[in-house]
Nucleic acid binder design. Structure first.
Lengths: 340, 340
DNA sequence: CACCGGTATGGGAGCGCTCCCACCCTAGAG
DNA sequence: CTCTAGGGTGGGAGCGCTCCCATACCGGTG
């Protein structure tokens, strides 16, 4: 891979052509108001004639900003999350960044070593900001990035009291809505398959489930709670466990569609019909939900919108922090299908 | 979003600390052999002590290379392709680039305007190479990029005789393998739902289907061919059409899993059982295939491997072109499940 | 008519690196 | 002992911008 050969015009050449100074061209390029209309036009013409495009490296060096933002996704999660999650997120981030004419640098982190390398990378001043997806409870990276003085926004949070700016969806509301719906359909013994409880998102959905039951006046029963890990196999295993512990259950809230698919398989194994014997609700409203048999009721998160919001927050990040941590929690929405 | 405040050490400072010249430090950093072991050690120590990380912008400016590669994905396709396709591709590209210590710049192109902007972007010399995914038959972008003198590799090709380096999977083999399998199971009237025929990938799979039938001694019947568009709805519509034209068909090769899902729905509507009445084969081996009822036999493409191969080809792109266009066609593999 | 404030403009001084030429020194050859 | 050949090394000259200070010029003031 060799460099570019055909040398492109420089600021200086544009200046010469327009019969003005270098500084003036720079002002025009950067939209400074301190330029007469006449000069601006002359420069614009020279730019067009020469097909001038500013050299980004030079800009970055002189101006110490890069017009690029990194989106960091742990590879392990990329495999495991409901399929289109990250693609939707990327889509949202990308759309918003494009509007601001910023570039998206995607970093899939595969190992601890690559994480280290990423920190080096940040130190090399290659990005103006960082977006972090799928951060676990004890992850020090967000704080590390902040210490480097680089703006950062996370997707999701590490705990209830998060110290780093984040965008999350209303996971508590998701659990609550699912349970309310099941209660509304007359279900009495509602179980749940949770995600890995070291992730806030899993705890929040579980919290919503409990809150929903409490609001409906159901007594809590820990026997109706089984931990999964956001995988299909995990969902299947958790469902089997639940059926063993509480054979009389008549509904399940799975904290993800993928786990719901696993649960559905376990129910089929056990000869339970959905929704006749057991009603099922998932989270994500992924394509999987539509294709399941019967189609799965699921709580939709506005993933793409989260991506957009993250990017916007990052770009808006005003120099002077205004006291509290910027955060945004977006609403979720129940999509009702035949599984309950 | 403001710049970095804490200034990091520079080459010069490392040089001072190590008691050597600037050039020597540069040589050490870049692994030049023309440095004595002793000096190298002294510099390495100074680097470690100061926590020096080379400034990327300065490097790019002075050396006119960026250590970054752009991956371009048309947004329209990102929505439509079998779900994890692009994520798998990204994963492969990312892994390979990480090994070479290159950065991945992801560009989702939403509109003609954004395409233009992308060309500007290339002219700004921000990347050392370009990877293009999902290129349509008449797309001029690949040639445009080459004209700028930037190395480029495509995923898939625009036609049989492609002039730009590419990595593709064996789509003809995919169609052939699917048909051979169906013939082997004793199916007599094998139909196909194709992708949009302005895409080479769709034509290739159709070609494979025809070749497979010919090899089995089946007479061609254009009534058994219906065009889809890689969407579920398209698959459903095409299947209805086929059932109307050739009610006696006993097998269908759908050129994607998503279309197979649509076809499956149409078959259910029509009261045909799968696989008893009609056998079904898809392409992609996506999660959708596993979750279908019955699980779908599908032709797997090595997507992640394609991504890796693309990145490797791009990085290897030797300065002097050696006559013919570099290309790589990776094998596909039939994954048999209960749908036939 | 000298003076002032403001606006438009030119261009020097870097930003931190790579490239490359000049120079030093040492060892072997003549 | 001089000469030559290199390996090692230092540092000047940019790379193409942005920042910012200095300058030029304008009309209005006292």
């Amino acid at each position: 891979m060799n460099g570019r050969q055909n040398s492109r015009p420089t600021l200086e050449q544009v200046a010469a052509r327009a019969g003005v100074g270098r500084g003036t061209v720079s002002r025009v390029i950067n939209g400074s108001p301190r330029v007469s209309e006449q000069t601006r036009a002359a420069v614009a013409r020279a730019v067009a004639e020469l097909g001038y495009v500013p050299n980004q490296a030079a800009r970055a060096l002189a101006g110490s900003r890069t017009d690029a933002v990194a989106l960091v996704i742990p590879e392990a999660e990329a495999r495991l999350f409901a399929e289109p999650y990250f693609l939707d997120l990327i889509r949202g981030v990308s759309a918003e960044l494009a509007e601001a004419d910023k570039q998206l640098l995607l970093t899939l982190v595969r190992s601890e070593q690559e994480r280290q390398r990423f920190e080096q990378y940040l130190a090399a001043q290659r990005v103006d900001g960082v977006l972090l997806a799928s951060v676990h409870g004890d992850d020090p990276l967000p704080d590390r990035v902040r210490e480097l003085g680089i703006p950062v926004v996370m997707n999701g949070r590490r705990s209830e009291a998060e110290s780093v700016p984040y965008v999350d969806s209303d996971n508590i509301g998701a659990g609550r809505a699912a349970v309310a719906h099941l209660v509304g359909r007359g279900r009495q013994r509602i179980a749940t398959v949770t995600g890995p409880l070291d992730m806030y998102v899993a705890r929040a959905r579980l919290g919503g489930y409990r809150a929903g039951l409490a609001e409906a006046g159901h007594a809590p029963d820990e026997g109706l709670v089984a931990a999964g890990d956001f995988t299909e196999d995990g969902g299947r295993a958790a469902m089997r466990e639940l059926l063993e512990r509480r054979p009389g259950l008549d509904a399940v809230f799975a904290a993800s569609d993928v786990m719901a698919a696993g649960a559905r398989a376990a129910l089929r194994e056990a000869g339970r019909r959905v929704p006749d014997d057991v009603a099922l609700v998932g989270v994500d409203d992924s394509p999987v939900a539509r294709l399941m048999d019967p189609p799965l009721t699921s709580v939709r998160q506005p993933i793409e919108e989260m991506g957009r919001t993250m990017a916007r927050m990052l770009l808006d990040d005003a120099p002077g922090g205004r006291g509290d941590v910027p955060k945004r929690v977006l609403p979720t929405e129940l999509v009702v299908r035949e599984s309950c």
